[in-house]
Design a protein around this nucleic acid. Structure first.
Lengths: 230, 230
DNA sequence: TAGTGGTCTAGACCACTCA
DNA sequence: GAGTGGTCTAGACCACTAT
């Protein structure tokens, strides 16, 4: 095993930083100096330092050199959860059930969000995600039919909207908003919870290029927690 | 400008994937083939593909080749928020106020979490974070005094615990849990909210190596949202 | 066992930016 | 203008794993 893998060097450098050898905001040696010290190519040092920069541990500037970050806040990465996988990870059997499905005129806020002209309709769906036949999450979804007209012909009773969309429009980008809301009658009913209970809400909108595809609100059952490593 | 930067190639490859040229789960050409096609070094292709793998767009296996991901879920990265910065970003004036500060025996769950022996005490603090003099978040924090004994001498009225800890134990790792809870009397009072209101709760624990440093619960004011790009 | 990605090297040139 | 990081290349060898 190579002692000079960029992995090893990255780890050693990380330790030198964490040990306080280089203070917060201090300049650390240049790539060339480190390459000599560790007897490896500059490229290898470069890889290691770039990774540390990605992690937010150091800041690099041409001519300015590499500095230890002032506020070393680790970036948390986490994957936007897919409900089915979440359920299966906790060892439960997953099933989903469509409660309602209709074309109708979206509310003003949804129209704005999906950039749908005023007169047009969109597809609205309510779905319950079940874990071992108990409600796990309640989903409200709007789909922009103009962007994905084929969805009206899709066998949505057999395949979940989400999976159909992923297969049809696989590489959309989007945003997510997490918040806490009190369950209203509708949500409480769907989740077999109580009105007023605090519910973890994930609000996601996705689009492809300039076209908005779908916006979805996911209400999770009581006690749901989203976990992430730093 | 080099036409064959790994940035450009990454972008081109991404477009070829997103356009559907390579289907979900399909094998894409090997690095060597792509290097020939784009007339660049294999290393360059490798960089581009590794980035795409980081993004979760492709999966790479030795001997198995590179495949387009089956479930192309973009990984969301976001930075663990520092309350002061959050407040300043929305254009408000930040101030914090320590409500209480005492050494006492932690609850069993905190003891377990911080790995504190049963008989030992820890530092408990309550802090209010204010935005324009209105409550923004309420913080409950336990600090493991054994791990950071110097904290008892720190001028915590002048510098926030958080910033003191960052400067003293800058590079700790940790985990975060997001959830929604109903405000109890204490939290509602601190946030000038109402009992029962849904509160966004961030529960963070950090440690350095094997030693646990601090665990903190942050209750955000009503309507707080955590935003993230995909 | 053979094929593919993972990585290291040595050298070169470029691009940014600080003084 | 000079110093530092950013990146490309060509070649080499290694490590994993599918067949």
């Amino acid at each position: 095993m190579t002692a000079n893998s960029h992995h090893n060097i990255r780890q050693v450098l990380r330790e030198r930083i964490e040990s306080g050898e280089w203070a917060l905001g201090a300049l650390i040696p240049g790539e060339l100096a480190l390459a000599v010290e560790y007897r490896c190519a500059r490229t290898t040092i470069n890889r290691a330092l770039q990774t540390l920069a990605d992690e937010g541990l150091v800041v690099r500037k041409r001519k300015g050199g590499t500095r230890v970050c002032q506020m070393p806040v680790r970036h948390a990465k986490f994957e936007i959860p897919i409900v089915r996988e979440q359920v299966e990870v906790i060892g439960s059997k997953y099933r989903h059930q469509i409660m309602s499905q209709q074309k109708k005129t979206p509310t003003a806020s949804v129209r704005t969000r999906l950039r749908i002209p005023d007169a047009k309709k969109a597809l609205f769906m309510e779905t319950i995600h079940l874990a071992d036949e108990r409600p796990y999450a309640y989903e409200e979804r709007w789909v922009n039919i103009q962007a994905v007209p084929k969805i009206m012909d899709a066998p949505l009773d057999q395949i979940s909207v989400n999976e159909w969309l992923v297969k049809t429009v696989p590489f959309s980008s989007g945003d997510v908003v997490f918040s806490a809301v009190n369950a209203d009658k509708r949500v409480a009913g769907a989740l077999e919870s109580k009105v007023g209970n605090a519910i973890f809400l994930v609000d996601r909108t996705t689009w492809l290029g300039e076209e908005f595809i779908t916006t979805i609100k996911l209400y999770y059952r009581d006690g749901y927690q989203l976990y992430s490593q730093l």
